[in-house]
């Protein structure tokens, strides 16, 4: 089983976590929504899979390049 890390493309904070560990996701599904520069930026799944890990909590600051979640496919 291949795993893929989902990284933040921006610096900001976690506003809302939309999916939970174990959820199946399709390509382009939003996993969570980050807040940066007063904008809600969705974090999208790059491929179909299942969420193996979510490594951040709502309200937590995140840096560009930080791993937010891990997908299994």
């Amino acid at each position: 089983m291949a795993t893929k890390e989902v990284r933040s493309e921006i610096t900001g904070s976690v506003w809302k976590i939309v999916k939970q560990v174990g959820d199946s996701v399709g390509e382009e599904d939003a996993l969570m929504i980050l807040e940066s520069m007063k904008m809600e930026i969705p974090v999208l799944a790059e491929a179909t899979g299942k969420i193996a890990e979510i490594r951040v909590k709502e309200g937590e600051p995140v840096a560009e390049g930080q791993v937010l979640a891990v997908l299994e496919s």
Binding site: E9, I10, S36, M37, K38, M39, I41
Partner: peptide
């Protein structure tokens, strides 16, 4: 591009 830095 509002998806990155809100376009800043």
């Amino acid at each position: 591009n509002p998806m990155v830095n809100g376009g800043a």
